[in-house]
Simulated assay, not measured.
Amino acid sequence: MNEDIYLYNDNCIKVMQKLPDNSVDLILTDPPYNIGNFMKDRQTNLNRMRKNFFVGAGWDNEDYHDWLGNMTQFFVEAHRILKTKGTLIMFMSVLKVESIIELAQTTGFYYKTTGIWHKTNPMPRNMNLHFVNSNEPWLYFINDGKTGTFNNKGKLELDFIQTSVTPASEKKFGKHPTQKPVTLMDHFINLLSNPGDTVLDPFMGSGTTGVSAVSNDRKFIGIEVSEEYYKLSKRRILNNSI
């Protein structure tokens, strides 16, 4: 789009393969969790959910071995394009945390920790059937090193981050079923990168990482395979609006 913002409507592996070595400071992303088929068999009221809920949409229903293969390719390219001691933050289902850690370690990443994003106002889905899910894991890796940028300024930073879910004000250009709030991405971008750094989101979705990166004076590369969500991301990022 300009020298500081590059947006691609394409498969992320294809685009990442064209990016230069050692060109990205931070990868902050929310890939498919590969739990669509698993969730279909759960005792839930999904038939009442909106039609674009990820379980019914089909884009998270990949065969597990195919998903592992694709994520392996992702980590190979992420290792190449991230700078030495660059950071990778990835949201992931708790069911797949072990798989992701193993893949990352085999491709040159140092595993730092698994943290939690706690949603203060989660959707009360299936509240009369079981505990309401209010936590979502994120994983923290360093590329070819054991520590990277960490702008805590002497403040204790916990691996437990608490925010509300995405407010309606951040969905005025359109909605995504797994959209994250801007304040959550702000937390990671300000802590783990510096102004002028390049932030990459290979699974851009609704573009929240891009909105946060641009508003915090970072360069941004975003990749989204869905044309619908690419257009949504483009509208949000170019308007620099939440």
Rank of each mutant, 00 (worst) to 15 (best):
G36L: 04
Y110M: 09
K146E: 09
A213M: 06
N194G: 00
H118D: 09
N133F: 07
Y33A: 02
K175R: 15
G69D: 05
L139W: 05
Q73I: 00
D60F: 07
N11E: 14
L7Q: 11
G115L: 03
E98P: 06
N239V: 08
H187E: 02
V76W: 05
D201C: 04
Q43Y: 14
M1E: 14
E102Y: 10
P137Q: 12
T84L: 03
K155P: 03
G145L: 12
T120F: 08
N190P: 02
L200Q: 00
N151H: 05
N194Q: 06
L200C: 01
F74E: 01
M71V: 14
H176V: 00
L46H: 13
F53K: 06
K180A: 03
I237Y: 06
I161A: 06
N11T: 09
L191W: 07
G56H: 02
N135R: 13
G56W: 00
D10W: 01
L28S: 03
L129Y: 09
L19W: 07
S164W: 05
H65A: 08
A78G: 01
D21K: 13
K119Q: 11
L95K: 15
T149H: 02
F53I: 11
V24M: 11
S215Q: 15
F91C: 12
T166D: 04
D25F: 03
E77Y: 04
F54Y: 14
V211G: 07
K85N: 15
N135Y: 14
D159G: 12
Y111M: 08
I161M: 10
N216C: 02
F141K: 04
G148T: 02
M49N: 10
R125C: 13
E3M: 11
G174P: 05
E227T: 14
L7E: 10
L103W: 04
M1R: 13
N190H: 02
